[in-house]
Design a protein around this nucleic acid. Structure first.
Lengths: 99, 99
DNA sequence: GAAAGTGTAGCGTGTCGCTTTACACCTGTC
DNA sequence: GACAGGTGTAAAGCGACACGCTACACTTTC
């Protein structure tokens, strides 16, 4: 239950690590991934999430060495979403036995 | 990239393993979790997903031995969603260097 | 028969992913 | 200076879905 670190948005990883290594423009990457340039830009800036569909596209697009594992992208998104959810509303739920 | 097994919906796990061990009714569990009975029933039967909010509620409610880890619930939901997404639409994306 | 528990359909609301269009900005080259 | 290409982003429209509420039918237990 200790989640002290601030997980980065996976789009940030994509923007800072993956795309520069590929030497591709955002427009060209979006074209190859089969999504719109606008949507990819939103993901890269943390304004949209890595969806299962996008994770599968990244897996089909990248080599395993470049980060082509759908579970990794989705898992990082999950960590991010969980942290953001815990940061604001903590649900008012009591432990079950009082334990 | 090999995802050959059929991951169960996490609500199924909740219905078959967790709730029986607690000897609680669905209505009472929903009340303690702070969600509606209808919504919990939908989750238990795979008609609704484990959201970050619900995962945090489960974590606050259950002891760690009972399965009280938000990441586990969300991760199982992720596996399920990923498998379902891969099962139907496979995105038409080419590998990046023809590799 | 009454009460409690359950599954589920239907409705309304809010959120969000996604595309398309459009705009403003920056950079290079002619 | 004009023009083209790349970029970020806002707005509009659509579809999907989580969620609560109400309502109904069914079952079991008293």
């Amino acid at each position: 239950m200790t989640r002290m670190y601030n997980p980065p948005h996976p789009g940030e990883t994509l923007r800072e690590d993956v795309l520069p290594a590929l030497e591709l423009t955002v427009s060209e990457a979006a074209r190859q991934l089969g999504i719109s340039r606008v949507q990819l830009s939103r993901v890269l800036h943390g304004r949209a999430s890595i969806t299962p569909d996008l994770a599968l596209r990244l897996e089909a697009w990248l080599t395993p060495e470049q980060g082509g594992r759908a579970e990794l992208w989705l898992g990082q998104q999950m960590e991010y979403d969980l942290y953001q959810a815990a940061r604001k509303r903590r649900p008012n739920v009591l432990p079950i036995h009082g334990a």
